[in-house]
Design a protein around this nucleic acid. Structure first.
Length: 400
RNA sequence: GGCGCUAUCGUCUAGGGGACUAGGACGGGGCCCUCUCAAGGCCCAAACACGGGUUCGAAUCCCGUUAGCGCUACCA
């Protein structure tokens, strides 16, 4: 059996959020476990919202987590010519047609359909155009998109995490695959690229389940066998809703700043929607790789629990030698405006077991470094009070 | 509205017809340790959404209901 090829394909329209990071982790874990290849592809076809800054942040986040890739990053925007060629091939083979409906007309139809309590489905009016009419409109300079013809047949696949999933073609639209500016729509771009990159397993969020039948239809129309699909569950906020800004920290960079260790984050993320079976919780990287399988993946969405993340971080913190904590703690102290330090290791050793984050370690070290507390802010004061006099004394502080 | 997915303690989960008096972890409560706060140890409370089947036997299989979530763009 040839080794699998998987890919993580984020769109650089925002930060690397924990859901994306978890998807990347699963792809990486699967590639590591099977000896396969992990491809990184940046899906930047939404030119309005994609930025290089976001791309950089996503790459940094992956590196921080220790998630590596064997190929790429490829940039989807560079394959526009192939996307267009695929769309035109479909058009030439009679599997797609030109649509001259304007956005306004489409919106009006949609509004009307919804008003009538019916789901909107494109009525194929442009499919009914004669070749002469199509030529006429093109000659007149009317802009057009290319729509893919969805047949009425059932489309089903054996999902690696959900088992059999099926859709009826009649419930699906003739969807647009090429915009009037000749750029590809997501579903086409993904399929075109996954074919070109010989992706064998598509491991992605299950919010893509409803895109899958469209993509399978595209694979078939393009004469290709679809890959294995594994739709992993979403990560939700504490209120059970899709994770968003109002849930506070959702980007992996936020956790990096809060003093979470990459190993702890990775371990915690792996356990969001995947279980090695049994009672294992703290899993070193090599164990994680050895134990990872697609059928250990949960079907149900998981709520992101930062309290448990912090607990796990505390576990990693206690286990790590002070030596390895030196750099992050020093960086944090620097951030707090505290410098000129001697050997911090003994100090770090004395406080790491009682800490949950690097930030917490640094705060306690700071208390010790500044016995007269002149540079301490209110937070440091509160910390001393919380630690109590016994702790202060144990650090050699003469405080009450 | 339509289509789809999902359903075990508050949360992450184990379990996949009899081993279930449903296990572990976080969080919560209590006790121990301790000059304080943590860490650590011990203990307690806490769940199979509901209703029908199938079966000698269902948390586990099937159907329905309910609820939650996702998608329903010339976004990805």
């Amino acid at each position: 059996m040839t080794p699998p090829r998987v890919r993580f394909a984020p769109s650089p329209t925002g930060y690397l959020h924990v859901g994306g990071a978890r998807t990347a982790l699963f792809n990486w874990l699967y590639a590591q476990h099977t000896g396969g290849t992990h491809v990184l592809r940046i899906e930047d076809t939404d030119r309005e919202r994609s930025t290089e800054e976001h791309t950089r942040i996503i790459l940094d986040g992956l590196r921080w987590l220790g998630i590596t890739w064997d190929e790429g990053p490829y940039f989807q925007g560079e394959y526009a010519a192939r996307h267009q060629a695929d769309a035109e091939r479909l058009l030439a083979e009679g599997k797609a047609y030109r649509c001259f409906c304007t956005r306004e007309e489409l919106d009006a139809q949609r509004t009307r359909a919804e008003g009538g309590g019916v789901g909107f489905r494109y009525d194929r009016r442009c499919f009914k155009l004669t070749p002469a009419q199509v030529q006429e409109r093109i000659r007149s300079g009317a802009p057009s998109t290319i729509r893919f013809i969805m047949d009425d047949e059932e489309i089903a696949w054996d999902d690696a995490v959900h088992g059999r999933i099926s859709f009826q073609g009649r419930d699906l639209d003739d969807f647009v695959i090429l915009r009037s500016d000749n750029s590809a729509i997501y579903n086409l771009a993904v399929v075109s690229d996954d074919i070109a990159m010989r992706i064998s397993h598509v491991i992605r969020g299950d919010d893509h389940i409803s895109n899958t039948p469209k993509q399978i239809a595209l694979y078939r129309a393009l004469g290709q066998t679809p890959p294995v699909f594994a739709h992993v569950p979403m990560i939700l906020g504490a209120d059970g809703k899709k994770l968003s800004k109002r849930h506070g920290a959702t980007a992996v960079g936020d956790y990096q700043e809060q003093g979470i260790l990459p190993a702890a984050m990775r371990n915690f993320l792996a356990l969001m929607g995947w279980s090695p079976g049994g009672d294992r919780e703290i899993l070193p990287e090599d164990e994680m790789i050895r134990l990872f399988t697609l059928d250990g993946i949960q079907k149900k969405a998981a709520v992101f629990d930062t309290t448990k993340l912090e607990w796990m971080n505390g576990q990693y913190l206690s286990a790590l030698p002070a030596n390895e904590l030196l750099e992050p703690v020093r960086r944090q102290l620097d951030h707090m405006g505290i410098q000129g330090l001697g050997d911090l290791r003994p100090l770090i050793d004395s406080v790491k077991a009682r800490s949950r984050t690097i930030l917490h370690v640094a705060e306690q070290v700071a208390v010790r470094l500044d016995p007269d507390r002149s540079a301490l802010d209110a937070k440091g004061e509160a910390l001393i009070r919380k630690m109590g006099s016994g702790f202060a004394r144990s650090l050699g502080l003469a405080s009450a």
